[in-house]
Design a protein around this nucleic acid. Sequence first.
RNA 1: GGUCGGUUGGCCGAGUGGCUAGGCACAGCUCUGCAAAAGCUGCUACAGCGGUUCGAAUCCGCUAUCGACCUCCA
Length: 492
Amino acid sequence: MAPKRRSTPIIEGRVGMYVCGPTVYSDVHIGNCRTFVSFDVIYRYLMYLGYKVRYVRNITDVGHLEGDADSNAEDKISKKARLEQLEPMEIVQKYTNGFHEIMHRFNTLDPSIEPRATGHILEQIEMVEEIIKRGYGYEANGSVYFDTNKLLRETDVYGKLSGRKVEDLLVETRDLKNQDEKRHPSDFAIWIKADERHLLRWNAPWSEGFPGWHLECSVMSTKYLGERFDIHGGGNDLKFPHHENEIAQSYGACGNTPANYWIHSNMLLLNGRKMSKSEGNNITPVQLFTGDSPHISKAYSPMALRFFFLQAHYSSTLDLNDASLGAAEKGYRRLIDTYNTLKGLSSTVSKSEHALAGEMEQGIQAAFDEMNDDFNAPKAMARMFELCTVINKLADGQLSTDDAGQHTLDTVTKGFSDLLFVIFGLLDESAAGADDHMDQLQGLMQLVIDMRQQARLNKDWPTSDKIRDTLNAIHIELKDGKEGTQWKINEK
RNA sequence: GGUCGGUUGGCCGAGUGGCUAGGCACAGCUCUGCAAAAGCUGCUACAGCGGUUCGAAUCCGCUAUCGACCUCCA
């Protein structure tokens, strides 16, 4: 799955995929959205290939600490609850709802299972016990730590994923606070004794406390996908320490590493710089949808954003700015509009032997081939845009639809439709919402177009222009072509 | 400070040794009553310096720069 690797599922015909979900202590970050859109396309494509995919994406609602991990730090959910004077679960519910709403606007599919950390406390306690039993964990003052030093001595699994060297992990040069409980600086907490102000707490053999952040993913991936599964994904910034520690925990509890393939999506930049709330270089999904931000000149639709994300490979950083969003919006429209043009084409020849037919079928096949190479959506789209030129020439009469043949037109139409809607998960926004009254709208528009055509035949330009301009003002665009006038609804 | 990864034409972005995507923007043209839409044509870039090679955006080294991780972050 990952770059230039050929994948073989552990169980034939099935794929297990775990993706680290959000910590629900605030509104979802736009970079987070990019990550989940990337994995949505991977999920969709694997299903398209015929795999039965179990896609598990968690909700982190406990254990994710602020600042210095382990001792003095405060749980993110707990802190927010204290500040807003709400129950922690109210915070969790509020931001989980918001997260789902935004993801649905991006037209991402729901995961097969969306487990919560707080729903798996028992399993987490059991895993801590197992880790201790196997000698990879130790207790200190009611907290339990993972013994990374032991793991490093015995195996080469720790540090491999993130390319860290054993010496670097062992020789910790930074000043860390509250290291007294740990035997070694690189050890990390798997159970944390709660202090007085901590709201989220459960009884465990070692103390009343709460699980370490990394533990939930190990527990929930194991529970729903097994000790070994196919794909583990997440943002690049989770590679270390989060994913490295997951590997350690799985090894400590089960004696093996959890995932066959690790997929990491890269960061989203804003105006060429990293997003940072404190420096004001930040934008939210809602601000993008409404245009209410100094960073952008107008609103951008969820589908324009989704297309924008797909124009870069998931493993590359992507720079979000007003100009590139505008370019994506237009590219998205062109692709959808050309598909709608394609749907209307037909040929009197069922199967053509002309070179054009082969060219078009190879073109659409090439797009799928790109997806087979590490889910390369930007390259797949490039192949589709090349076909757009051909499709528009067919519609324009510059190429003959009979040279293409009905079979080829059908093949390309099917391929376009599958790629655009099933795999990329795009929607035709101009068509959405109008379904109920589409028949009436069609009839009405045909009447208006006929009347304008009559005016044009009479050379009554003021009337024909008034019709066109008035429609334009309400975002209905008329397109005069050789075959008559077409219309479409544009984004406001 | 350490480790790792980027630096591609006006902008965004593919691309791991010769065939040098794609989108947007821009210019000219075709079509059009005028436009719009659509089409055609043009726009040949790989941070800098040095090296390896018959040949490098692609490999190696140095420099600059941006970023990630090392400490919460997708």
